[in-house]
Computed example of a mutant assay.
Amino acid sequence: MSDQTMSSTREVGFRHVVMAASRGLLAFERLAIMGFMYLLTALILVNVVTRYSNIPIYWIDESAVYSVVWLTFIGASAMTRLRLDFAVTMMTERLSASKQRLFKIIATGMVIVFGVSLMITCVLWMDPVGIASAGFDAKKFAGQTFNFLYTERTQTLNWPTWVLYLTLPIFAVSMTIHGTANLLEDLDLVPRVAPKGFQLSELDGVN
Protein backbone atom coordinates (compact mmCIF):
# COMPACT_ATOMS: atom_id res chain seq x y z
CA MET A 1 0.00 0.00 0.00
CA SER A 2 1.42 3.39 -1.00
CA ASP A 3 2.01 6.22 1.47
CA GLN A 4 -0.64 8.32 -0.29
CA THR A 5 -3.25 5.59 0.10
CA MET A 6 -2.36 5.09 3.76
CA SER A 7 -2.62 8.84 4.39
CA SER A 8 -6.01 8.97 2.69
CA THR A 9 -7.21 6.02 4.76
CA ARG A 10 -6.09 7.71 7.99
CA GLU A 11 -7.90 10.93 7.00
CA VAL A 12 -11.12 9.05 6.28
CA GLY A 13 -10.74 7.19 9.57
CA PHE A 14 -10.20 10.45 11.46
CA ARG A 15 -13.30 12.01 9.91
CA HIS A 16 -15.36 8.93 10.73
CA VAL A 17 -14.19 8.90 14.34
CA VAL A 18 -14.90 12.62 14.82
CA MET A 19 -18.37 12.46 13.29
CA ALA A 20 -19.26 9.30 15.22
CA ALA A 21 -18.01 10.84 18.47
CA SER A 22 -20.01 14.00 17.82
CA ARG A 23 -23.19 12.04 17.09
CA GLY A 24 -22.84 9.91 20.20
CA LEU A 25 -22.00 12.92 22.33
CA LEU A 26 -24.97 14.87 21.01
CA ALA A 27 -27.32 11.96 21.75
CA PHE A 28 -26.00 11.77 25.32
CA GLU A 29 -26.28 15.55 25.73
CA ARG A 30 -29.92 15.40 24.63
CA LEU A 31 -30.69 12.92 27.40
CA ALA A 32 -28.63 14.91 29.92
CA ILE A 33 -30.44 18.14 29.04
CA MET A 34 -33.82 16.50 29.51
CA GLY A 35 -32.67 14.93 32.77
CA PHE A 36 -31.41 18.20 34.22
CA MET A 37 -34.56 20.04 33.11
CA TYR A 38 -36.73 17.47 34.91
CA LEU A 39 -34.45 17.63 37.94
CA LEU A 40 -34.50 21.43 38.02
CA THR A 41 -38.28 21.51 37.72
CA ALA A 42 -38.63 18.99 40.53
CA LEU A 43 -36.23 20.90 42.78
CA ILE A 44 -38.09 24.18 42.27
CA LEU A 45 -41.49 22.59 42.91
CA VAL A 46 -40.25 20.87 46.06
CA ASN A 47 -38.70 24.13 47.21
CA VAL A 48 -41.96 26.04 46.73
CA VAL A 49 -44.06 23.40 48.49
CA THR A 50 -41.72 23.01 51.46
CA ARG A 51 -41.37 26.76 51.95
CA TYR A 52 -45.12 27.29 51.98
CA SER A 53 -45.37 24.36 54.39
CA ASN A 54 -42.81 26.02 56.68
CA ILE A 55 -40.47 23.02 56.36
CA PRO A 56 -37.88 24.36 53.87
CA ILE A 57 -35.07 22.06 52.78
CA TYR A 58 -31.88 24.05 53.16
CA TRP A 59 -29.88 22.35 50.35
CA ILE A 60 -32.50 22.74 47.61
CA ASP A 61 -31.35 26.20 46.51
CA GLU A 62 -27.75 25.16 46.04
CA SER A 63 -28.82 22.01 44.20
CA ALA A 64 -30.92 24.10 41.80
CA VAL A 65 -28.03 26.48 41.16
CA TYR A 66 -25.60 23.72 40.27
CA SER A 67 -28.25 22.01 38.13
CA VAL A 68 -28.59 25.23 36.14
CA VAL A 69 -24.81 25.46 35.77
CA TRP A 70 -24.51 21.92 34.40
CA LEU A 71 -27.58 22.41 32.20
CA THR A 72 -26.08 25.60 30.78
CA PHE A 73 -22.75 24.08 29.81
CA ILE A 74 -24.26 20.89 28.40
CA GLY A 75 -26.78 22.95 26.45
CA ALA A 76 -24.05 25.26 25.15
CA SER A 77 -22.10 22.26 23.86
CA ALA A 78 -25.18 20.87 22.09
CA MET A 79 -25.94 24.29 20.62
CA THR A 80 -22.44 24.36 19.13
CA ARG A 81 -23.12 21.18 17.15
CA LEU A 82 -26.62 22.32 16.22
CA ARG A 83 -25.14 25.62 15.03
CA LEU A 84 -27.42 27.55 17.35
CA ASP A 85 -24.57 29.55 18.83
CA PHE A 86 -24.83 33.31 18.40
CA ALA A 87 -23.45 34.88 15.25
CA VAL A 88 -23.29 38.51 14.13
CA THR A 89 -23.96 38.63 10.38
CA MET A 90 -24.18 42.39 9.81
CA MET A 91 -20.95 42.31 7.81
CA THR A 92 -20.78 38.78 6.40
CA GLU A 93 -24.28 38.83 4.90
CA ARG A 94 -23.10 41.58 2.55
CA LEU A 95 -20.19 39.52 1.24
CA SER A 96 -20.14 37.07 -1.64
CA ALA A 97 -21.00 33.41 -1.06
CA SER A 98 -17.34 32.34 -1.23
CA LYS A 99 -16.27 34.94 1.33
CA GLN A 100 -19.20 34.05 3.60
CA ARG A 101 -18.02 30.45 3.52
CA LEU A 102 -14.48 31.55 4.36
CA PHE A 103 -15.63 33.59 7.36
CA LYS A 104 -17.79 30.68 8.50
CA ILE A 105 -14.77 28.38 8.41
CA ILE A 106 -12.73 30.93 10.36
CA ALA A 107 -15.48 31.28 12.98
CA THR A 108 -15.73 27.51 13.38
CA GLY A 109 -11.96 27.28 13.69
CA MET A 110 -12.05 29.89 16.47
CA VAL A 111 -14.55 27.71 18.35
CA ILE A 112 -12.04 24.85 18.22
CA VAL A 113 -9.22 27.14 19.35
CA PHE A 114 -11.33 28.31 22.29
CA GLY A 115 -12.20 24.72 23.22
CA VAL A 116 -8.55 23.61 23.13
CA SER A 117 -7.49 26.69 25.12
CA LEU A 118 -10.13 25.94 27.74
CA MET A 119 -8.92 22.33 27.97
CA ILE A 120 -5.35 23.52 28.57
CA THR A 121 -6.56 25.99 31.20
CA CYS A 122 -8.53 23.27 32.98
CA VAL A 123 -5.51 20.95 33.01
CA LEU A 124 -3.32 23.70 34.50
CA TRP A 125 -6.01 24.60 37.04
CA MET A 126 -6.97 21.09 38.12
CA ASP A 127 -3.39 19.81 37.78
CA PRO A 128 -4.14 16.06 37.63
CA VAL A 129 -0.43 15.25 37.58
CA GLY A 130 0.16 17.33 40.70
CA ILE A 131 -2.67 15.81 42.72
CA ALA A 132 -1.55 12.32 41.65
CA SER A 133 2.05 13.13 42.72
CA ALA A 134 0.69 14.16 46.11
CA GLY A 135 -0.91 10.75 46.48
CA PHE A 136 -4.35 12.28 45.99
CA ASP A 137 -3.92 13.96 49.37
CA ALA A 138 -5.84 17.22 48.94
CA LYS A 139 -4.27 18.96 51.94
CA LYS A 140 -0.73 17.99 50.93
CA PHE A 141 -1.42 19.18 47.36
CA ALA A 142 -2.82 22.48 48.62
CA GLY A 143 0.21 23.01 50.85
CA GLN A 144 2.61 22.40 47.97
CA THR A 145 0.83 24.38 45.26
CA PHE A 146 -1.52 26.78 47.13
CA ASN A 147 -4.25 25.35 44.90
CA PHE A 148 -7.20 24.73 47.23
CA LEU A 149 -9.52 23.30 44.60
CA TYR A 150 -9.51 19.81 46.11
CA THR A 151 -10.00 20.97 49.72
CA GLU A 152 -13.05 23.17 49.12
CA ARG A 153 -16.58 21.88 49.65
CA THR A 154 -19.97 23.36 48.83
CA GLN A 155 -21.79 25.29 51.55
CA THR A 156 -24.95 23.22 52.04
CA LEU A 157 -24.52 20.01 50.07
CA ASN A 158 -20.99 19.58 51.46
CA TRP A 159 -19.86 18.09 48.15
CA PRO A 160 -16.28 18.46 46.85
CA THR A 161 -16.33 21.48 44.58
CA TRP A 162 -13.98 19.88 42.05
CA VAL A 163 -16.67 17.34 41.21
CA LEU A 164 -19.07 20.13 40.25
CA TYR A 165 -16.33 22.01 38.39
CA LEU A 166 -15.82 18.99 36.12
CA THR A 167 -18.44 20.54 33.87
CA LEU A 168 -15.74 22.90 32.56
CA PRO A 169 -13.28 20.31 31.13
CA ILE A 170 -16.21 18.19 29.93
CA PHE A 171 -17.61 21.22 28.13
CA ALA A 172 -14.20 22.04 26.64
CA VAL A 173 -13.78 18.52 25.23
CA SER A 174 -17.33 18.25 23.90
CA MET A 175 -17.26 21.69 22.31
CA THR A 176 -13.96 20.88 20.61
CA ILE A 177 -15.37 17.63 19.20
CA HIS A 178 -18.52 19.36 17.95
CA GLY A 179 -16.50 22.24 16.54
CA THR A 180 -14.25 19.82 14.66
CA ALA A 181 -17.32 18.04 13.25
CA ASN A 182 -18.74 21.38 12.12
CA LEU A 183 -15.43 22.32 10.52
CA LEU A 184 -15.31 19.06 8.56
CA GLU A 185 -18.79 19.86 7.23
CA ASP A 186 -17.86 23.46 6.42
CA LEU A 187 -14.84 22.24 4.46
CA ASP A 188 -17.08 19.77 2.57
CA LEU A 189 -14.96 16.88 3.81
CA VAL A 190 -18.05 15.09 5.09
CA PRO A 191 -21.72 15.41 4.11
CA ARG A 192 -23.83 17.59 6.34
CA VAL A 193 -26.63 15.62 8.01
CA ALA A 194 -29.52 16.72 10.19
CA PRO A 195 -29.00 15.82 13.88
CA LYS A 196 -31.24 13.09 15.22
CA GLY A 197 -33.52 13.82 18.15
CA PHE A 198 -33.68 17.57 17.53
CA GLN A 199 -36.44 19.17 15.49
CA LEU A 200 -35.13 22.45 14.13
CA SER A 201 -37.02 24.89 11.99
CA GLU A 202 -35.38 27.04 9.33
CA LEU A 203 -35.44 29.96 11.78
CA ASP A 204 -33.57 28.10 14.49
CA GLY A 205 -30.13 28.10 12.92
CA VAL A 206 -28.15 31.31 13.30
CA ASN A 207 -24.69 30.09 12.35
Rank of each mutant, 00 (worst) to 15 (best):
L164W: 06
T80F: 02
K140R: 13
A138V: 06
M119T: 07
L157D: 00
S117F: 05
L95D: 04
T156D: 02
M79G: 13
M6H: 08
T41A: 07
R51Y: 01
T9V: 11
A76D: 03
V116F: 04
K104L: 01
S2N: 13
E11K: 12
A87L: 12
G35L: 10
I74Y: 09
A107F: 02
M34F: 13
Q155P: 00
V111S: 10
N182K: 10
G205P: 00
L118M: 14
L124K: 07
F36A: 12
A27C: 10
A27S: 14
I177H: 07
M110Y: 10
M6P: 01
L95F: 06
V46E: 03
F103V: 06
N47I: 00
L39W: 07
P169T: 14
L82H: 08
L124W: 01
F114N: 14
G115S: 12
R81E: 00
N207R: 15
I112T: 10
I120D: 02
L39S: 14
I55C: 08
K140P: 02
T151D: 00
N158A: 12
S67I: 04
Y38L: 14
V65K: 11
S22R: 15
A27L: 12
N147L: 02
T89Q: 11
V190P: 02
R192L: 02
F148W: 03
K196V: 07
M19R: 15
G75N: 02
S133H: 11
R81I: 00
